[in-house]
């Protein structure tokens, strides 16, 4: 069923024969996928098919779940991140993640963005200020919050919170950014802003996004992978998937006949 994609693109993350079990139940089954660098890759599929799990596999967040076991390789720049000597904390700095629901810490806006930087040992106030500002500017939040940098982040609107959380992730200047349904809790305007943001981000980062919204996937992604029941059904350039899907399942899903 695999469609080979002829691409000159450099592969950032390569997933190879990757399987995952959560609480003795197989969630991912021999996934074979490569994520091109500086492109937006969308993961789509029916609910419960394992999209979030696959996303979490790329920065080893699955390990925080109960009873997790995995098999296979995930190569980041050719290095298997599942090697035992991998520094997980370092890995997660390189592969940032944003969740479905905005989850800022109940600290000030500034402290939220500076959180990861401080963990990295950044102590210089001036450098911190610069990095926080640039992160906030990148997500287009700077003008909105520059006067309330030291207010509690929970006082921001949900859309602002989500962008703040993205800023928090990109402040660390990750190489890959994983977004798990980043816009599903947002209103249309905020969604639009986040989509624009993602589009701009791909210049600097490799982006993987999980979405339930076909239009969204079509609008912002360069590549799309379709998962079903823990298997990768199809992976191709987005317009290929949406115009001439190779598999019947994909077509059914995209046209809304199941899922």
């Amino acid at each position: 069923m695999q469609t080979t994609v002829q691409t000159t693109m450099q592969t950032k993350v390569a997933i190879h024969e990757f399987s995952l079990w959560l609480q003795h139940q197989q969630v991912l089954d021999a996934i074979e996928l490569s994520i091109p660098a500086n492109q937006v890759t969308a993961l789509i599929g029916p609910s419960g098919c394992g999209k979030s799990s696959l996303l979490r596999a790329m920065n080893r967040m699955n390990e925080l779940m109960l009873d997790c076991r995995s098999q296979g390789q995930v190569l980041l720049d050719g290095q298997n991140i599942y090697q035992s000597e991998t520094d997980v904390a370092r890995l997660r700095c390189r592969v940032g993640m944003v969740f479905q629901k905005p989850n800022p810490f109940p600290k000030s806006v500034y402290d939220n963005v500076a959180f990861g930087l401080r963990l990295q040992g950044q102590r210089s106030r001036r450098r911190l200020d610069e990095q926080v500002e640039s992160a906030l500017k990148q997500v287009g939040l700077w003008s909105e919050v520059k006067n309330r940098l030291h207010h509690n982040a929970l006082t921001l609107s949900t859309g602002q919170q989500q962008r703040l959380v993205i800023a928090r992730a990109i402040a660390l200047q990750p190489e890959v950014l994983l977004l798990d349904e980043p816009a599903s809790a947002l209103d249309p305007i905020s969604t639009l802003k986040v989509e624009e943001l993602i589009y701009e981000l791909k210049a600097a980062y490799t982006v993987v996004i999980v979405t339930h919204n076909m239009q969204q996937a079509a609008r912002i992604s360069d590549y799309t992978a379709f998962l079903n029941q823990g298997r990768l059904v199809e992976w191709a350039e987005t317009h290929t998937i949406f115009t001439q899907p190779a598999s019947q399942q994909t077509e059914d899903y995209i046209t809304g006949r199941f899922g």
């Binding site: 925080l64 904390a89 370092r90 700095c93 969740f99 629901k101 990861g116 992730a169």
Partner: peptide
């Protein structure tokens, strides 16, 4: 304390100790 807070911290590259002492315990 919502699990999301812990996940957020881990996703930013915090170790477990940092998550506990910088995110969980203060809250």
């Amino acid at each position: 304390l919502p699990q999301a807070q812990r996940l957020a911290s881990f996703a930013l590259g915090a170790t477990q100790a940092e998550t506990i002492w910088k995110v969980v315990a203060p809250q």
